[in-house]
Every structure is written in C-alpha cells, then in structure tokens.
Amino acid sequence: MSSDSLIKMANQIAQYFATEPDHTLAVNGVRQHIKSFWTPGMRRDLLAWEKKHPDAALHPLVLAALVEPEVNA
C-alpha cells in the first residue's frame, strides 16, 4: 500500500477519534484501531515513513499513538 494511502487512512482514523474529549482515550482509540485493523506491514510502513518525514502532516493523535511501542506489535 502506498504511503499516501496509509497517511490518509491514519489521519481519517484520527479525525474520527478527535471528537473524544479525553485526549488519552482518543490516542488509545487511534492506537487500538491501527493495531487491530492494520497489518504489521502497514504499521511498519507508516512508522518508517514518519521517521523519514518527521515534519509531515500526520494528525497529532496519530503521532501520539505511534509513540507507544505496542503499535509495532
């Protein structure tokens, strides 16, 4: 899957969870969705892309969700 598609999907997930008033719950929602519904390869590709483009346009909830090591599992 292309990086553009992964970024778009990750940002859409974050937009959904952005309506959650509790920031921690929102980050956990994004993290759990990515862990539950994305393949390990998709997660690795998104993480690798983010490391190469740290100033890119990933939603802040996605960035916060990627910080946790369990998203890699």
Rank of each mutant, 00 (worst) to 15 (best):
E20L: 14
S36F: 11
D4N: 03
A57S: 06
A64K: 08
T19K: 14
K51V: 12
T39P: 01
G41Q: 08
M1K: 02
D55C: 01
Y16N: 14
D4M: 06
Q15Y: 07
T39E: 07
Q12D: 08
A26S: 14
H33Q: 15
M1A: 08
P60F: 03
N72Q: 12
L58C: 03
A26F: 10
S36M: 13
R44F: 08
P21M: 07
M9K: 12
E68D: 10
L61N: 12
A18H: 03
M42G: 06
A57W: 09
L61H: 11
K8M: 05
T19N: 15
N28L: 11
G41V: 04
N11M: 03
S5K: 13
D22H: 12
E70A: 13
R43D: 02
E68C: 02
F17I: 09
N11R: 02
L61F: 08
A64E: 09
R43V: 04
K8H: 05
G41R: 06
L6A: 09
H23W: 09
L61S: 06
L46K: 08
E50H: 13
H53T: 05
P21F: 05
R31N: 08
A73T: 09
M1C: 07
Q15A: 12
K52V: 14
D4R: 08
P60W: 00
H23E: 06
L66R: 02
T39V: 03
N28F: 10
V62Q: 03
H23F: 15
T24Q: 11
H33T: 11
E70M: 13
K8Y: 12
F37G: 09
R44V: 05
K8P: 01
M9A: 12
V27L: 07
K8R: 15
H23I: 06
Q15D: 13
N11D: 06
A65V: 00
P60V: 01
V27E: 04
F37H: 14
R43F: 04
A73C: 14
S3Y: 03
A73P: 12
A64W: 02
V30T: 05
H59L: 05
L6P: 02
L25W: 15
S3I: 06
V62S: 01
M42S: 06
E70L: 05
L47V: 05
Y16L: 14
A56F: 04
N28V: 15
S3H: 10
L63A: 03
A18Q: 05
D55H: 03
V30H: 04
V30N: 02
W38I: 02
A14Y: 03
K52W: 07
M42K: 09
T39H: 10
T39R: 11
N11G: 04
A57N: 08
Y16W: 14
D45Y: 00
A65H: 02
F37V: 08
A73S: 13
V27K: 04
